[in-house]
Design a protein around this nucleic acid. Sequence first.
DNA 1: CCTTGAACCTGCGGGC
DNA 2: TGCCCGCAGGTTCAAG
Length: 279
Amino acid sequence: MPELPEVETVCRGLRPALEGRRIERAIIRRKDLRKPFPAGLAAKLKDATVERVYRRAKYILCRLDNNFVLVIHLGMSGRVRVMRHAGEAMVHDHFILHTDRGDSIVLNDPRRFGLVDLVAAEDLDAHSLFRNLGPEPLDKGFDEGILGDSLRGKRVSIKTAIMDQGIVVGVGNIYASESLFLAGIDPAMEAGSVSRRKLARLVIAIRTVLQKAIDAGGSTLRDHRQTSGEMGYFQYSFAVYDREGQACPGCRCDISKTGGVKKIIQGGRSTFFCPRKQT
DNA sequence: CCTTGAACCTGCGGGC
DNA sequence: TGCCCGCAGGTTCAAG
């Protein structure tokens, strides 16, 4: 489910409940998600205080005062909810933290493509999950020069390329289609042959789309919820994603003739685009 | 090195 | 109504 805006939304919801709080208890309700829960996880979390909650790529990171970093990835279907009063655990509630303020933080993940890990802070950058990640799209360091360098010689499509977390992090299947629409770029273009001018537009488009999605609390198609349980709302602003056959925004052409937004499959994933605006 | 496709897993909506 | 199929926001691994 979650791309950068959804993960960022969850981080923001976790901060008031976790930062400065001591973990009284961690409950692990199965042995693994995508990977086994790390050995001794519950014991290492117990009585640790959360100093800071932040995000790298699509990972939620909780810096603890015992020098560990708790790493959470939501996979395709992960949700995190914060509850003021511990209730009955629901199906697919796999990992629960109780804080000294009485809050429960619950990770629910039906498909179990998510991940929980615990890494020593000094080992984080060199960890296999983080070592090969590209730049943060909302940071200064992401520009058309950096993007062009990492795309040079790439034969994959530009759409597949911007979903590659080694090129730029945080862009997934929804925001790849939306960004390419906003930039006016044909998603099937070979990544290595996209012009500098187009790359400059793409950088701005990725930033714009991600920021607007964060402002909307992410996109709720199925699983995503803010930590309060509230939906995200950016799905109502989609230009092309999941809009096959519909008019794209500002379209003045006759849909009965043009067919509207097109859907193609790239790298096994659906791509939505407007052939008239994206060339 | 690069690229592609399958695998991981559950749930849901559409078609028959 | 019920069953079957395809598809879903991600990542990793093997094979070519």
